[in-house]
């Protein structure tokens, strides 16, 4: 319980959590909150400024920017969560196997991870997208392929750290199966650390999705997405610079909030860390 208290005491972390929860809820209730349909085109009103009908103005096709921003939460955050969840599940499974069984299986898995980790993830993602074509499903698959190796490795080392603990040794001597030990004794301890890993990284996943959509390789029109909105705003950067602000600021705040939260979580969990800095 100590860790949770630490987290609650940390004001900054709480602000981040409240902010992120608000963002997710806003995304969830976007259909009720958004003043317009985000894909409704109205070229007569294109590139309009701020008004009561369009609180943040309109884009190059006369679509309401506020509505697109709100609906964009769904796309961006949902994809980020799916990607993260899938990566963590794969990483936990494979990393768990490697950490528990050690020996040859571990060797093989780790060498495969080495191969995957020897390429920069951006290069790998671009190559996969190049082969499979752009689209939401494909960027999720591509980023899972690019990231699973790193998570496998991290989770393996977490698992190994615990397998050396006395109580685990004791459980093993008592004749419990490996699966039982993993489930009952290792996972409850490891979950916290894995959560830290995931929160730390979700910001970078959001950035990556936005970057790919910015390049036109990710989410396809007309689905509203922040990276794509930014890219559309870039095309009129000089004449309407203000158009870049809403999606840009949205990405900045959400990614920053996730990063700060990840840091605070790490502080709360990592004893060594805590001792050194406080």
């Amino acid at each position: 319980m100590g860790t949770l208290n630490k987290l609650i005491q940390n004001r900054f972390a709480m602000i981040c959590i409240i902010f992120l929860v608000t963002v997710v809820l806003t995304g969830f209730f976007a259909p009720w909150l958004a003043p317009h349909n985000p894909v409704d085109v109205n070229v007569k009103e294109k590139l309009a400024g701020i008004s009561t009908t369009y609180p943040m103005g309109t884009d190059q096709l006369g679509r309401c920017i506020l509505s697109r921003l709100l609906y964009g939460i769904r796309t961006t955050v949902l994809i980020a969560f799916i990607t993260m969840a899938a990566t963590i599940i794969i990483g936990t499974l494979i990393g768990g196997i490697a950490g528990l069984f050690r020996g040859k299986i571990d060797e093989i898995i780790m060498r495969i991870c080495d191969i995957f980790m020897s390429f920069p993830s951006e290069v790998m993602i671009l190559a996969i997208i190049g082969m499979m074509g752009p689209g939401i499903t494909n960027i999720i698959i591509a980023s899972i392929i690019a990231k699973w190796a790193w998570y496998t490795r991290m989770i393996r080392s977490i698992v190994i750290k615990y397998t050396d603990k006395n109580y685990i040794q004791f459980a093993r001597v008592s004749g419990f199966s490996r699966w039982h030990i993993f489930r009952k004794h290792i996972m409850p301890n490891a979950t916290g650390e894995i959560a830290v890993l995931a929160t730390l990284d979700i910001g970078s996943v959001i950035l990556m999705i936005s970057a790919l959509s910015f390049l036109g390789l990710g989410v396809q029109a007309p689905t509203p997405e922040w990276g794509m909105m930014l890219s559309e705003a870039k095309n009129v950067m000089i004449i309407h610079p203000g158009l870049m602000l809403p999606p840009g600021i949205a990405i900045l705040f959400v990614v920053a909030a996730f990063n700060f939260l990840g840091d605070s979580l790490q502080d709360a969990y990592n004893v060594k860390h805590r001792k050194r800095w406080r």
Partner: peptide, 13 residues
């Protein structure tokens, strides 16, 4: 192409 995307989205609509 700067124009084709916007026109495509319009046609989509």
């Amino acid at each position: 192409n700067a124009q084709e995307k916007t026109i495509s989205e319009y046609i989509q609509h």
